[in-house]
């Protein structure tokens, strides 16, 4: 059982299996995002309230989904690294953090752009946007902490602990921000609590979300692979690989 898990986590094995998986995720990401954006931007009906500006959800919502999912997967990778000492998990977590921060930023930016036609201002302390902003700070904290250590082993462990602490806090932060927002209620309209969408609207959204996820998986695999080569560059199998490639 344990030896199986460790085999699963050996950088060499991961390097091999990810090479086979990665192309599929790239293809899926390209197809899904292409279909989703053409459908969503060109063919889905305009919103009766917001007109065409609602179409920004085809970027905003998938990015926001991903921003949260990446933090959770980062924490899971942290647990795997701390409990089973699987280095690949830590490499993946290290590669995910900037990606998650970027997604959070995209969600925030698209939310701000959306705010212009909806609220007439670039920023509103909307519950969703506020939570996203705090999530961005959490990401920046993890990235900064990892960068602050001179020893990479310590950096990995510290970042893992912080990611776990963060992931326990994310739901608490989310609910408290929602509570705070309902108490103060500055705007009558939130981007998130919408009436039920017609199928022609949400189906492309679903495709976009799936496309974003595939993109995330493919990108994480790719970045983790290069990180493996970087960290394991002195190991024999990497040297042999380099000789083969040449």
């Amino acid at each position: 059982m344990w030896s199986f898990i460790h085999k699963l986590g050996s950088p060499k094995w991961f390097y091999g299996i990810s090479a086979r998986l990665m192309p599929w995720f790239w293809v899926a990401a390209a197809v899904l995002i292409a279909v989703g954006s053409v459908w969503g931007l060109a063919f889905a009906p305009a919103d009766y309230q917001q007109g065409n500006s609602f179409r920004i959800i085809y970027v905003h919502v998938p990015a926001a989904f991903l921003a949260q999912s990446i933090f959770v997967s980062m924490a899971v990778a942290g647990v795997v690294f701390m409990v089973w000492k699987i280095k690949v998990a830590d490499m993946a977590a290290a590669m995910m953090a900037p990606l998650g921060a970027a997604m959070t930023f995209i969600a925030l930016f698209s939310g701000a752009v959306w705010g212009v036609p909806t609220w007439g201002t670039w920023w509103m302390w909307d519950a969703r946007l506020t939570s996203m902003l705090i999530l961005l700070f959490l990401y920046l904290g993890v990235i900064a902490l990892r960068g602050a250590f001179t020893s990479r082993d310590s950096a990995s462990r510290a970042a893992s602990v912080l990611a776990m602490v963060g992931v326990i806090n994310i739901p608490i932060i989310k609910y408290s921000v929602d509570w705070w927002y309902t108490l103060h209620q500055p705007a009558s309209f939130t981007i998130t609590s919408r009436p039920a969408m017609p199928t022609e609207m949400w189906l492309p959204l679903l495709i976009m979300v799936l496309g974003f996820y595939s993109f995330f998986i493919a990108l994480t695999l790719m970045r983790t692979r290069s990180e493996i080569l970087r960290r394991e560059s002195s190991k024999r199998w990497v040297r042999e690989l380099a000789v083969e490639e040449r």
Partner: peptide, 17 residues
């Protein structure tokens, strides 16, 4: 400074309530 950066986001629920 790093300490503040790590801790302040986690303080938000306590601040809210």
């Amino acid at each position: 400074v790093l300490l503040s950066l790590l801790v302040l986001p986690l303080y938000i629920p306590v601040l809210i309530f």
